[in-house]
């Protein structure tokens, strides 16, 4: 198993063969450093780790492989920069400052969070976390990590509830963001360089029986990267802040979701029914919809 881990590390782009040996020691280093310097990301990522989707063992192995590769780099940087937290904390203050140290610091922070989480999980699960062939890290994983780290750093630490790769959909990176942080996060996703998701392709509402959800599919016209953003809301008082100030195209899409599913969008310029007649009662696309007047 350890041979495999070394092989993984050798195969990933950066670590050279000399780093393979200290790589074994690096998780041990990174873990206490991470545990001390970044208690908050570890604390928030620990509750979100059990909430990760069903592909657990493979995902953990994948995360572990990626995390250890990064931890090797991050450990070197962390030692040099005296803890990854300080530049990450300075990042929100310096909007649009020097890109490289900021980005590196964010990657370091995310990597440390992940390493802490992976190490915690490995300690919890014993030796079973790595199956016979660990799944290769998804090609879109760095993109997801960058987006997630960006939002965690600049908006709020707990803005993101979950970040995963939807393998079924060409490995589309998916972020689940909290409703009250949505507009800020979307503004960031639209405008920060390298993550310019300027084109909102689709907004759909889905009625899971326990809650309602709205999914935004974004694409960047320059780099052709895709991203999906999901927001959950409850059934009794569904409400999600409108992203019309960020992408104007959400206007009618949100009206349609309001009309058919009943989710309210505070901040929308003109929220009224679009498909059904204006005096219709009820929201037809809900699973528990019973027509008031079954005339058809």
């Amino acid at each position: 198993m350890s041979d495999e881990k070394e092989k993984e590390l050798e195969q990933s782009a950066e670590p050279k063969s000399e780093e393979a040996a200290p790589a074994e020691a690096a998780p041990a280093e990174a873990t206490p450093a991470a545990a001390e310097a970044t208690p908050k990301p570890a604390a928030e990522s620990a509750p979100s780790a059990p909430a990760a989707p069903a592909v657990d063992p493979e995902r953990e192995a994948k995360l572990k492989a990626a995390a250890e590769a990064r931890a090797a780099r991050a450990a070197a940087k962390a030692a040099a920069e005296a803890g990854g937290e300080a530049p990450a904390a300075a990042a929100p203050a310096g909007a649009g400052g020097e890109v490289d140290p900021e980005k590196a610091a964010k990657i370091a922070a995310a990597a440390e969070a992940r390493a802490a989480r992976a190490a915690a999980k490995a300690a919890a699960e014993g030796g079973e976390a790595a199956p016979a062939e660990p799944k290769p890290p998804s090609p879109k994983q760095p993109q997801l990590d960058e987006a997630a780290a960006l939002i965690r750093a600049s908006v709020a630490e707990d803005a993101i509830e979950e970040a995963y790769i939807n393998e079924l959909n060409d490995h589309m990176p998916t972020l689940v963001i909290r409703a009250d942080r949505l507009v800020e996060a979307c503004r960031l996703l639209k405008t920060r360089t390298g993550q310019d998701y300027t084109y909102l392709r689709n907004v759909s509402g889905v009625d899971y029986e326990t809650h309602l959800e709205v999914v935004y599919h974004l694409v960047s016209l320059n780099s052709k990267n895709e991203l999906a953003v999901k927001v959950k809301t409850n059934r009794e008082q569904p409400g999600i802040p409108s992203v019309v100030p960020v992408w104007e195209t959400a206007n009618w899409n949100e009206r349609e979701i309001y009309d058919l599913l009943g989710i309210d969008f505070p901040g929308h310029p003109d929220l009224r029914r679009i498909m059904m007649p204006d005096d219709w009662v009820g929201h037809p696309l809900r699973k528990d919809y019973v027509p008031l007047d079954p005339e058809v």
């Binding site: 079924l168 959909n169 589309m172 392709r201 759909s204 999914v215």
Partner: peptide
């Protein structure tokens, strides 16, 4: 189809037609 969701879009004469399947 297996459980999950997917969005895909293609170029129709009018623009991007896409389907989001859950």
């Amino acid at each position: 189809p297996p459980a999950g969701e997917l969005y895909v879009g293609i170029e129709s004469p009018r623009g991007e037609i896409g389907v989001h399947i859950v």
